[in-house]
Amino acid sequence: MTKSTAAGPGSGSTRRFSFVRGVFARRTAAVAGAAVLAGTAAVCAPGLAYSAPRAAASTVPASAVPVTDFRDCPPLPDGVDPARWRCEVHTAAPVLTIGKMTTRLAPITMTHAEGPLPDGGAGQVWGAMHSAPTAVPGVRDLAIQPEYGGRSDFYTGTFSLRFRLLGPLAAPGCTIGADAPVDFRLTRSGPSTWVSQDPPLIEFSAYDDTFTVPAPEHCGPRTQLLDHRLGLPAAEGNLMTYDASYTFQTYDRLSRIQAK
């Protein structure tokens, strides 16, 4: 896998699938926003702490959410140049349609590192993902929370997610994509926008309307009820739009920033 040259501020070239935020309008959906997620060459599923279900997430766009926290930046591979590796932190405000459900998920924050390997190849290292539950519209006392699915490639905009279902209707462990995570391949909907150069802050939009969604698994005696309420499994008609912003810092400067 090779990496194209990143476009800097003012450049007309297209930056590779890195985190950027923006506003996206699709004629085929009444939702706005999509951003490109990307992944890692070496991935590690982080442990996520689950909080109680809460009300639906705010409709504040991702551009209003600062992404400047580098605490989840992962250690670098042996033998790489810290000045040529950067830690990227992105925050997204996805709108998800699966089956009968459409909702704006609580903001998702992902962190990863990327840069050239000693052999000249393009490397990536997973850091962490954080999100929170969002109430499922039209289904009382049920919330949905995305989890990192263990696969991602931030150069191409591919990644996988699981969706934990929380509440009295769902048994512990009830998850959409429990055994086989939902795979996304995001398509950029336009060029990225540099909002700020110091500190760097970039926005982008992307979407995927090609993924399939399995039925929830490990949900106990109410599994069929959940299938009916959510309209799952769903082989078509699914959509994720993704407004996102990201910031980055090279590792040679990162230690000085973290020491402040």
Rank of each mutant, 00 (worst) to 15 (best):
T14P: 01
S18T: 15
V65L: 14
A49H: 07
A42E: 15
F17Q: 14
K3M: 14
V65H: 09
A55Y: 04
D78N: 08
R16Q: 09
A56K: 10
V36D: 03
D72N: 06
R15P: 03
P61M: 07
V65Y: 11
R15C: 11
P66A: 13
A41K: 10
V67R: 01
L37T: 01
G39W: 02
G12C: 13
G33P: 00
T68I: 10
S13Q: 14
A42G: 03
R71C: 04
F19M: 10
F24V: 09
G8D: 08
R54F: 00
S11H: 06
A32W: 02
A56H: 01
A7V: 07
F17W: 06
A35D: 07
R71M: 10
G47D: 11
P53W: 06
S18W: 13
T5M: 09
T2P: 09
A41D: 14
A52C: 02
K3N: 00
A64Q: 13
L48A: 08
P46W: 01
F70W: 11
A64D: 13
P75K: 06
S4H: 08
F17D: 14
G22Y: 01
P75C: 05
V20P: 00
F19Q: 07
R26A: 07
F70V: 13
A38P: 07
G47E: 10
T59R: 06
R16K: 06
V60M: 08
P9T: 12
R16Y: 10
A52P: 02
P75F: 05
T14I: 15
T59V: 11
V65F: 07
P77I: 11
A35I: 04
F70G: 02
S63A: 15
V60R: 08
R27T: 11
A64W: 06
A42P: 02
G47Y: 03
T28S: 11
A29W: 03
A30P: 00
T40N: 06
A42W: 13
C73D: 04
G10E: 13
A49W: 01
F24T: 06
S63F: 02
Y50C: 09
S51L: 10
A49L: 14
T5V: 13
A49Y: 03
T2N: 09
S13Y: 13
F70T: 08
A32Q: 08
P74F: 09
G33N: 03
A32D: 07
V60Q: 05
P53K: 13
V65G: 02
P61L: 09
R21D: 15
R54Y: 00
F70E: 08
T59I: 08
S11M: 11
R26S: 08
T40G: 00
S4G: 12
A25D: 12
G33V: 05
L37D: 05
V36Y: 02
T40S: 09
T40H: 02
M1Q: 07
G10K: 08
A38S: 12
S11N: 10
A38T: 12
Y50Q: 11
D72T: 07
T14A: 10
